[in-house]
Nucleic acid binder design. Structure first.
Length: 445
RNA sequence: GCGUCAUUGGUGAAGUGGUUAACACGCUAGUUUGUGGCACUAGUAUGCAAGAGUUCGAUUCUCUUAUGACGCCCCA
């Protein structure tokens, strides 16, 4: 048997419906914030990620899917969304358009990692990137937008942690101060931290092993080393967050992994039982230097991303009521070939009229067909009967009340319209269904 | 890259160094019911992740590989 590659997952059945639901919530929130959908390639030149993410990091050296294509080009499956979007911004000269450019993406990413809880090799992420504005209001908006998506999805216990790394000057000053501070005590720390002091001393702050170490607790924070400009900027971000009524905690331990981050960084946690120690569901930050690193014009940017699988898990654990349509309007049953043909014809007619209709395909016994209608949760059934059809009539049965009505074929649509109207109210959809009439035109494009 | 544990049918699973691998659900067919949802009957793994080894004999022991769950590193 051929199995899916390691660390991949098939999403189907109920889970797929949950994912689809997340899609629709994202789309509707993004529309209101006026962010535009962007699709960039799933693979890019290897160089993009090497330069964007950093040549020396573990990430690039051993956690990407790299390969040569038939033209001997170095290709990498995108491990994250930001680099591709920024590349597209530069390549398509979006900096010439109305700035800031507010974009969102939603797609699969690939990371060559050992799978574990909440971590797959193929993962689906939604994210936003805002390019072309350094205004602190954008920082606050991106954070609030993230929080609002979680809220719209129905999640409770959302916690926002924010921090600032300051500008490049502040960052470097802090970096040096940390090294100086930890150096005399480093032998008291775990082996990992001993390595970290050279490579990325900021990470020591986040160490789980040494988290109770007094030296670590009293370590200087990024906030101590901000220059006035960076400090002022951070105050503005907080001010706007207050204004937007986003609750947050300033957490100096949030440093994020990558070099390109500066100023605002944030992580959003969901306080959910059964989520394990790592309850971060989304994170992001400002990257004012990235565009330049990728040969673009000096352009400030900020972004945020969240993973689908953890979101879906969170919704499941929280028992969030998700409006999933699980039933169908009508199931058509038949016995002989003439009736079968009429079932095929009628189901098409009714589908085009907007009803969710299914029918029998394997010509099983009526009993089995009724069972099938049950499984599909059909609201109504019609047993097509040659005699009745000759009289232009059908008998339609409500599967719940068992009430039967024999009506003329011409009245069928009118009948369904009236009967199903009440059921419609049970679902407060906002036009979620791609098959619904108000979307049909867009679909065709 | 490192570690721990796991892998039996469509599903949940029981089980043993030896002849027909339990039980339940599901599914299919049939009986009965005015055309299903109940009940009853029958069918439903030539095989216990793959390969190799130990053995008279392995699903059961050993090893290798693969996959999965969860950790470490890392976390875009």
């Amino acid at each position: 048997m051929i199995t899916k590659p390691k660390g991949c997952k098939d999403i189907y059945g109920r889970e797929a419906k949950v994912w689809k639901y997340i899609d629709t919530v994202i789309d509707s929130v993004m529309e209101k914030y006026n962010y535009n959908y962007i699709r960039t390639p799933i693979f890019e030149s290897t160089e993009l990620f090497h330069r964007g993410v950093g040549e020396t990091t573990d990430i690039v050296t051993k956690e990407t899917y790299d390969f040569k294509d038939r033209g001997d080009r170095s290709i990498t499956l995108r491990p994250e969304g930001t680099a591709g979007v920024v590349r597209s911004y530069i390549e398509n000269k979006m900096y010439g358009e109305n700035n800031p450019v507010k974009l969102y993406y939603n797609g699969t990413m690939y990371r060559y990692e050992r799978p574990q809880a909440g971590r797959e090799r193929e993962l689906t992420q939604f994210g936003v990137e805002v390019l072309g504005s350094d205004d602190p209001l954008i920082d606050a908006e991106v954070i609030s937008l993230a929080v609002n998506i979680y809220k719209m999805l129905g999640l409770k216990g959302i916690k926002v942690n924010i921090n600032t790394l300051g500008d490049v000057e502040s960052r470097n000053k802090y970096h040096d101060a940390l090294v100086k501070y930890f150096a005399p005590y480093i032998n008291d720390f775990c082996d990992d931290c001993k390595n970290r002091i050279d490579k990325s001393p900021l990470k020591i702050l986040d160490c789980k092993v040494d988290k109770d170490n007094e030296v670590l607790k009293n370590a200087p924070t990024t906030l101590d080393y901000l220059n006035d400009e960076s400090k002022e900027r951070f105050e503005k971000v907080k001010e706007y967050l207050d204004l937007l009524q986003v609750e947050y905690v300033v957490n100096p331990k949030i440093v994020r992994g990558l070099d390109y981050y500066n100023h605002t960084v944030f992580e959003i946690e969901a306080d959910i039982e059964g989520f394990g120690s790592n309850n971060v569901i989304g994170a992001g930050g400002r990257y004012n230097g990235l565009c330049e690193m990728l040969d673009g014009p000096q352009t400030p940017g900020i972004g945020f991303a969240t993973g689908f699988s953890r979101l879906a898990l969170a919704l499941e654990l929280e028992n969030v009521n998700i409006p999933i349509k699980e039933d169908i309007d009508l199931f058509l049953l038949y016995v002989n070939e003439d009736e079968k043909k009429y079932a095929a014809y009628l189901s098409q007619e009714l589908r085009m009229a907007g009803y969710v209709v299914d029918t029998e395909y394997t010509s099983r016994s009526l009993k089995a067909q009724f069972k099938q209608a049950d499984r599909l949760k059909a609201k109504y059934t019609i047993v097509l009967n040659s005699k009745e059809l000759d009289n232009n009539e059908v008998t339609i049965k409500n599967t719940k009340t068992k009430e039967e009505d024999t009506i003329s074929l011409d009245a069928l649509i009118y009948y369904l319209d009236e009967k199903l109207a009440d059921d419609m109210d049970e679902y407060n959809y906002e036009c979620d269904d791609s098959g619904c009439s108000c979307h049909s035109n867009e679909e065709d494009l």
